[in-house]
Amino acid sequence: MAIDEPPRLRDYGLQSERLLWPTKGPSVFEQEVAAMERAVGLTTLEKAVAWAQSRSMWPDTFGLACCAIEMMSIVTSRYDIARFGMEAFRSSPRQADLLIVSGRVVHKMAAPLRQVYDQMLEPKWVIAMGACASSGGMFNNYTTLQGVDKIVAVDIHVPGCPPRPEALIEGIVRLHEKVMAGVPPAYEIRGVAS
């Protein structure tokens, strides 16, 4: 590896790089991560902590609508997220690390959502699952929040209506890689969208 070539995620031993195409250049995601890493600079202890955080990130039971059903199905035996250490869905936000906002958020629900998010202890991550949580989805109207990133800082957006369980797991895996690479959670990097 040349000195000026930015380190790739697979140099850390992470497997999700597209191994079928080894000569593919770094994706935008990776370039961002690489730039941030050069800025942040991880020590061994931080790497160990990041490893622990990503291997047992417990989600909060925040299923709102249709995406919640697909979120429930990742716990089941076919898509098993217990292999990622995440099958323990905590009902209390105080015990959860990850908030998977699955479903459409309406203005009436925005306040409880923000309350639950505030009650979570740091570090905390947010996955906006589905089109409705990411951007309001097909509901561009008086009552639906056009994207949950208007009230909380989102790490990963997973598209789909609803996303397949595999798509959600892909989002979760990428979140793990972000954590392993040392990317700070979203509330430290950016605030809420405008």
Partner: peptide
């Protein structure tokens, strides 16, 4: 807490597109 305004949204769309709102 999940009032998404389906009925008003369906009024804005054509009959075909309104079918997409129904299953949700």
């Amino acid at each position: 807490y999940l009032h998404t305004g389906f009925e008003k949204s369906m009024e804005q769309k054509s009959w075909w597109k309104a079918i997409t709102y129904a299953p949700r």
